[in-house]
Design a protein around this nucleic acid. Sequence first.
DNA 1: TTGAACATGTAAACGGTTACATGATTTA
DNA 2: TAAATCATGTAACCGTTTACATGTTCAA
Lengths: 180, 180
Amino acid sequence: VKKINKTRYAILGMLFEKARSGYEIRQRMLGSTIHFWQESDASIYPMLRMLEDEGKVTSRDEFVGKRAKKIFEITKTGKKEFISWMALPAEADKHRDELLLKLFFGASTTKEKMIKQLLLKLERCEKTKNQLTNIETDTLATVTDTHPHKLFWQMTLRNGIIHCDAEIKWIKDCIEKLKD
Amino acid sequence: VKKINKTRYAILGMLFEKARSGYEIRQRMLGSTIHFWQESDASIYPMLRMLEDEGKVTSRDEFVGKRAKKIFEITKTGKKEFISWMALPAEADKHRDELLLKLFFGASTTKEKMIKQLLLKLERCEKTKNQLTNIETDTLATVTDTHPHKLFWQMTLRNGIIHCDAEIKWIKDCIEKLKD
DNA sequence: TTGAACATGTAAACGGTTACATGATTTA
DNA sequence: TAAATCATGTAACCGTTTACATGTTCAA
């Protein structure tokens, strides 16, 4: 079973929304899919070139003053490929969590050190939750309810928030159990 | 900032618990850390050899009948390296979730197709939750409460279960929202 | 006797990140 | 005038997975 490259679909999806430059794709990801998907420059630019070679996207230069932007637009075949991918069952993600690995081996060190690790994670979770909540109340609120994307954007945001909540509660519970 | 190889610490941690063969390390991971950490054969065996070359582990052959097993034991320097890693702040994991990516782009396809995706994920979550619950009630119940590892094993299991619960609830909520 | 589980490894391919390289424009 | 941001790309490296390769032992 050959593993399929998902970077291409993340990019095609972003271009399905609207025509964008590589830079804009990255910015958009940072401001919307950051908690479940992100791509680096070194993935985006070569993939855009590859997609263009395959005829899945076309590009044109746009100028803002002297500064050039290469705007990419998805083609008919690009849309077709994207839509077929959308219908494919999503692969289960086997993610790695270093905190849980350390906690699993927690007996090999002191409880104080484990509490420190948990507190660091707690801080991060609360920060992430705030970010997501801000996107929900600021960015998402400006989108009209009839906008077809809105419902879906809200659902992915909610997903991030509920997992943060669950994690925060779990961390506090763990810390209490370690303090006895 | 050079990325550090975590496979070595996952293995050292397993050997810190007790001396094991490569195969046993893998089996142990499948039965305990599967929901947050896993390694393939092609990572484990070469890493064991590397650790042996570095003097972090030693090996001896053990025979069960004619079948040989290569049992690895962690050394003093191996323990030292592991302990210092344990004290290092755990890196934040940027994981990817293909379902969320598809859902984010949900407006480009039909609601029915998105519901199908969600139902598949629901099935998987419930299966995972059952697995974890079984480990908790079967395997973990046989460990005495005074066992230093028990508390930590329980906490990592709980983490898996609460995230499954949150995800299941979220999926059902999403499906309802898509059915109108 | 056949298939599952036990047991250990290697080679090649792939995906992704880090670091490097360059230059324009805007803001403090 | 210096720093931050906009903007696009390449090269090298590393970690991980897939596929391959081999052989034993036990249970149905």
